[in-house]
Design a binder for these strands. Sequence first.
DNA 1: GCCAGATAGTTTCATATGAAACTATCGTCG
DNA 2: CGACGATAGTTTCATATGAAACTATCTGGC
Lengths: 158, 158
Amino acid sequence: MPNDRAVGEKPRLNLDTFLPYRLSVLSNRVSDAIARQYSERFDLSIPEWRIIAVLGQSPNLSAREVAGRTAMDKVQVSRAVTSLVSSRRVTRTEDAEDARISRLTLTAKGRAIYEEVAPLALRLESLLLSSLSPQERTVLQSLIYKLDRQVSLLGAPE
Amino acid sequence: MPNDRAVGEKPRLNLDTFLPYRLSVLSNRVSDAIARQYSERFDLSIPEWRIIAVLGQSPNLSAREVAGRTAMDKVQVSRAVTSLVSSRRVTRTEDAEDARISRLTLTAKGRAIYEEVAPLALRLESLLLSSLSPQERTVLQSLIYKLDRQVSLLGAPE
DNA sequence: GCCAGATAGTTTCATATGAAACTATCGTCG
DNA sequence: CGACGATAGTTTCATATGAAACTATCTGGC
């Protein structure tokens, strides 16, 4: 158990076993390793890649919908979309019903990137998971899910 | 199993079950929630807090040693230490043997912060873990450990 | 129809960050 | 001793990021 100690002892905080720290280090190492694989080859930032990933699955989303599905804020999405539009990987067309909304879709160029990067990402994910048994993989999913729900109790981002 | 699919099907990448993405979102949510608890109250950034945490356990480290224990690079450490020194939470004294090295130690003020924030951080960690059974906690540690080792195979940060 | 919020998205501005260049000191090989 | 490469740490510079202000459009009550 992390940071365990006998009653009455001084609280000991050891970063090596402190979950938030371990998670942060692991997550950064994973993201960096994967981003390294596509960032130079396709000149894609992480936000840009995420947007391509959701649009690859669900075309015609608004910026707000993209933000909701990628855990990015609207500023990040706006900037990444601007960049994707100027590199002709995404098109922005005004929504027919509501002029405030623009509908985002991959161009052929954007789709080609999606078709190439998605399998690459999946390969890297399975390489990462290859050190785990099938049970461990299942447990991992459920642990992440439980922690994700619990974290909202630590103080909502109001 | 994440992103599972039948043989021959198109590779499907779904962010919601894509481990690197899930990890990143979880880790950010956890870090943000915890940082929120101490950042305003103590005017501490995450890098600053990490440095206080390691110096609280191991006084007299060099900047390089701090970097090694906190997964930060030397630039980040240098900047955070400068800030901690100017707010009189850490002292920098030249190493007796090697003039390139400075030894870092918490001041009384720095120690007071450590004594207050460490238990707070540990409380938040146990709140987070309270949704998991003892076995799950053990498994979690070992999964993080395994993934951490495996990630180095995804391409070393040269 | 028209005004008072609400909502979608962009821009601005101040700060954070990282890579690379730089400074100072050290160790060592001749 | 005296270069020369390695090491500790800092600074510079260019870019990334987030909060808050802003623009444009929409919706609901009157």
